[in-house]
């Protein structure tokens, strides 16, 4: 492995931010028992993946991919399209997840996973 010079750090800095965010979301999902908080964690993870794609799409000195005579260099539009789709699908799944949470709250009277487990064991 070549040493960590400043160019490497600056070049990969965005990816590292993405990893920190993704791991924070991952940690919320697997360590918290509250179902709403789990969904928030999923959203954090999701946004970090969006950030990852958009980071890859960026070109130095580029501008937004809308054709205009004054500009020559544009960022890559393909990841933008993919993420546009992903955001909307993400909200759809979030809505479904929250609907499930509401139903679980109706059935069990709680949205804490361990309490739900305890009730299931008791039956």
């Amino acid at each position: 492995m070549e040493g960590f010079d400043i160019k490497t750090v600056l070049g990969l800095y965005n990816y590292w931010i993405v990893i920190v965010l993704a791991m924070a979301g991952f940690y919320i999902v697997i360590s918290r028992a509250n179902l709403v908080k789990k969904i928030v964690g999923l959203n954090v993870f999701q946004t970090s993946v969006f950030l990852f794609y958009i980071t890859m799409a960026k070109v130095d000195g580029g501008t937004a991919p809308i054709i205009e005579k004054a500009y020559e260099v544009y960022s890559n539009p393909l990841p933008h399209v993919l993420i546009l789709t992903a955001i909307v699908v993400g909200v759809a799944t979030t809505a479904l997840g929250l609907g499930l949470v509401v139903r679980i709250n109706d059935a069990y009277g709680t949205i804490e996973e361990d309490e739900i487990n305890a009730q299931d064991q008791a039956e």
């Binding site: 969006f50 958009i54 960026k58 991919p65 544009y74 990841p79 993420i83 546009l84």
Partner: peptide, 8 residues
Amino acid sequence: VQLDAVDV
């Protein structure tokens, strides 16, 4: 916006 993805 900063990363040129205005639609996103």
